[in-house]
């Protein structure tokens, strides 16, 4: 139980510190005076870790192939912003009893709301997609992601295609990494149990899994819901970090970004995927000037990787999973 205890402890510490720094949401704990640029990248990295780790439970551990993660992120982002931006006055008023902590209280609530809404969306996507496998599932989840985007685009109350600006920037380094540690802990401990062997069994062989009493339907939906919940949290954190969200920002290409992280990290390896998410965030920043070449390079990398090393660059790093996770 050692690593798990440590994780819980660090989450507690991170949350405590975030709480203490309430007054300065962008406070740069724990690295002292850190320049804003690095701070921003670290926050983005944390958000990407949440996205990648949560997609990994669907694509890696359960062996489904979702291409709609950005859709869940959008639900989380817009869902939380509904509380803190669109209806902020009313919400703050009803939290007046918290006194000075009302904005923080609202922020926490909005994070949860984002996560829960996204989880519901995950349920809505997971249920009809159950009969589908592989490429079909990929396209349907992609379709769902696009439907979510089109719906937001056509909803005036959410700012339509123009997007939503003026979201209070409350996401701090502590919050981001607190949630990402939480996601790592949750996915790691879910998978690493007798219960969690069910996810892996579904990935390896659905028919055998059913024959061994594993309810594959339940597992797939659970994976979708858990994945979507954390993607929603990531979206909420992102919205309150960047302050301005548009439907375009949650397009199919964002989903592909996350998929690339999961693939490079090695599907099914939580550690590998975490490292890949951090590394790719930094790489993206470094290559920001060369944006066009970056994507060409990624695409080539993806192709070459699949031909030569389908278990991912970092596959096998994972302690959470016995064996490597390159299987479909």
């Amino acid at each position: 139980m050692g690593p798990r205890f440590l994780l819980l402890l660090s989450i507690a510490a991170v949350s405590l510190v975030s709480f203490l720094f309430t007054g300065h949401p962008q406070a740069s704990w724990p690295l002292g005076q850190m320049d804003d640029y690095l701070l921003n990248i670290l926050i983005l990295a944390g958000i990407n870790v949440i996205l990648a780790v949560s997609l990994n439970i669907v694509n890696g551990h359960t062996g489904q192939f979702s291409l709609g993660h950005a859709g869940f992120m959008a639900v989380g982002a817009y869902g939380s912003a509904t509380l803190t931006q669109i209806n902020s006055k009313a919400c703050l008023a009803s939290l007046a009893f918290l006194g000075n902590a009302a904005p923080l209280g609202l922020f926490v609530l909005s994070l949860l709301a984002g996560g829960v809404l996204a989880a519901l969306a995950g349920l809505a996507v997971g249920l009809p997609s159950l009969r589908l496998k592989g490429d079909y599932l990929a396209i349907v989840t992609l379709g769902f992601g696009e439907i979510i985007r089109v719906m937001i685009q056509n909803t005036e109350a959410l700012g339509g295609a123009r997007g939503l600006a003026g979201i209070p920037s409350q996401t701090s380094l502590g919050w981001t990494w607190g949630v990402s540690l939480l996601s790592i802990y949750c996915v790691g401990s879910l998978v690493n149990s007798t219960y969690g062997r069910g996810f892996l069994a579904v990935r390896d062989d659905e028919i055998a899994a059913e024959a061994m009493g594993v309810n594959t339907t339940r597992y797939k939906v659970t994976a979708f819901v858990v994945g979507a919940f954390f993607a929603g949290l990531a979206g909420a954190l992102y919205a309150h970090f960047i302050g301005y969200i548009t439907p375009e920002g949650f397009s199919f290409l964002k989903s592909v970004d996350v998929v690339v992280m999961v693939i490079l990290g090695g599907m099914g390896s939580t550690a590998g995927v975490t490292v890949a998410a951090i590394a790719l965030t930094f790489l993206n920043e470094a290559l920001r000037e060369a944006e066009q070449y970056r994507m060409v390079a990624f695409a080539l990398l993806l192709i070459i990787l699949m031909i030569t090393r389908p278990q991912g660059l970092l596959g096998g790093l994972g302690r959470w999973l016995p064996g490597k996770g390159g299987k479909s």
Partner: peptide, 28 residues
């Protein structure tokens, strides 16, 4: 049709799924 990415022991453990008292929340 074994669970190919799992160890021998984990193959057997996966088949205890029906008899779990504590599932999702227990694992968390």
């Amino acid at each position: 049709r074994l669970f190919n990415s799992l160890s021998v022991l984990d193959n057997v453990i996966a088949a205890f799924n029906l008899h779990l008292e504590s599932g999702f929340f227990g694992a968390l």
